[in-house]
C-alpha cells in the first residue's frame, strides 16, 4: 500500500501539481489567468486545436473502419482463428514507431515527390498506419469475449449475417470500440513526432506544447496540457457512460422502498 502511495505522489500527483501551478501563474510567479485567456483568444492556438481535432477525428474514424473488420475476421472468422494472424497485426507495435514512420516517409516520398504538398493527408495517413494496432487490439479482445452462442441465437431467431452484426455484434462490442477510440484519439491529437518525421510544417496540439517548452515558456505549455487533460477526462467520462449500456437495476430501488 505505502510504496504504491509513494509512487502515486511522486509520479502522478506531483507532476500534475507542477503543471497546474505553472498554468495558473505568470512569469513573475503571481497567480493569474492570463495564460488561459491567451490560449482561448489566440487564433493560432485555437486554430491548432481545431486542426488537431480534425486530424484526430479522421484518424480515429479510419482506424475504426479499417480495424473493425480486421478484428472481426481475426476473432470470429473461421479460417483465421489463429493467434499468428493477430500477431502479424500487432507485430509492428514492437518496432520503434519512428522507424516505422521513417520507412513510411520513404514510401510516401516515392509516390508524392515532395511531401510538403500534402501535409494533412500525410499526417492522417501516417497516424492511421501507426495507431491501427491500438484500435485492433481492444476490438479483438471485445469480439473474442463475445459468446458465439449470441450470434447463433440471433441467427436462430431469423437474422441474416448483416442483421446479426448490426443488432448483436456491434452493440455488444461497444466497450471495445470505446477503448479503441480512446487509445487512438488522444495520441493522434498530440503525437507531433509523426508530423516532424514527415517534414510537416503544420502544427497539432503536441507540437504547440513542444514549441512552448523548447522556448522555456512553461506557463503556456502547461495550459495546453491542462486543456488536453480536460478533453481526455471528458472523453473518458462519456465513454464510461456509453460502456455501461444497461441502467442500474430498477428493482433494487423498489425492494428497499
Amino acid at each position: 500500500m505505502i510504496p504504491y502511495a509513494v509512487f502515486l505522489v511522486l509520479f502522478v500527483v506531483l507532476p500534475l501539481f507542477v503543471i497546474i501551478s505553472y498554468a495558473f501563474t505568470n512569469g513573475n510567479g503571481e497567480v493569474s489567468f492570463e495564460n488561459f485567456i491567451h490560449f482561448f483568444q489566440n487564433r493560432k492556438t485555437i486554430g491548432t486545436l481545431l486542426y488537431s481535432t480534425a486530424i484526430a477525428v479522421l484518424t480515429t474514424v479510419f482506424c475504426l473502419l479499417l480495424g473493425y473488420p480486421v478484428a472481426y475476421i481475426l476473432a470470429k472468422g473461421e479460417i483465421f482463428r489463429e493467434h499468428s494472424l493477430l500477431f502479424l497485426f500487432v507485430l509492428p507495435m514492437w518496432i520503434n514507431f519512428t522507424l516505422r514512420i521513417t520507412a513510411m516517409k520513404e514510401i510516401l516520398t516515392f509516390f508524392e515527390g515532395n511531401l510538403a504538398y500534402h501535409p494533412f493527408f500525410n499526417t492522417v495517413f501516417c497516424m492511421v498506419y501507426d495507431f491501427l494496432p491500438f484500435m485492433i487490439q481492444p476490438l479483438y479482445n471485445a469480439l473474442t469475449k463475445l459468446d458465439d452462442s449470441m450470434m447463433e441465437a440471433a441467427q436462430d431467431l431469423g437474422a441474416n449475417r448483416l442483421q446479426v452484426i448490426l443488432k448483436v455484434v456491434l452493440p455488444l462490442s461497444i466497450p471495445g470500440i470505446v477503448s479503441g477510440i480512446t487509445m487512438v484519439f488522444l495520441p493522434s491529437m498530440t503525437n507531433y513526432v509523426v508530423l516532424d518525421l514527415v517534414y510537416n510544417s503544420t502544427y497539432i496540439m503536441g507540437s504547440l506544447i513542444g514549441s512552448y517548452f523548447s522556448a522555456y515558456d512553461w506557463h503556456n505549455g502547461s495550459v495546453i496540457s491542462l486543456v488536453l487533460l480536460l478533453i481526455i477526462c471528458m472523453i473518458t467520462f462519456i465513454s464510461n457512460r456509453l460502456t455501461r449500456f444497461e441502467p442500474e437495476p430498477e428493482t433494487k430501488k423498489r425492494r428497499t422502498a
Binding site: 452462442s149 441467427q155 436462430d156 431469423g158 455488444l172
Partner: peptide, 20 residues
C-alpha cells in the same frame, strides 16, 4: 439451409439472452 431459414428455434445451453 442457414439457421435463419429454418422453422426451428433453439433454447441455448446458457440461454444466450442478449445482455444489451
Amino acid at each position: 439451409l442457414a439457421p435463419n431459414q429454418r422453422p426451428i428455434n433453439t433454447v441455448f445451453q446458457k440461454y444466450a439472452l442478449f445482455p444489451h
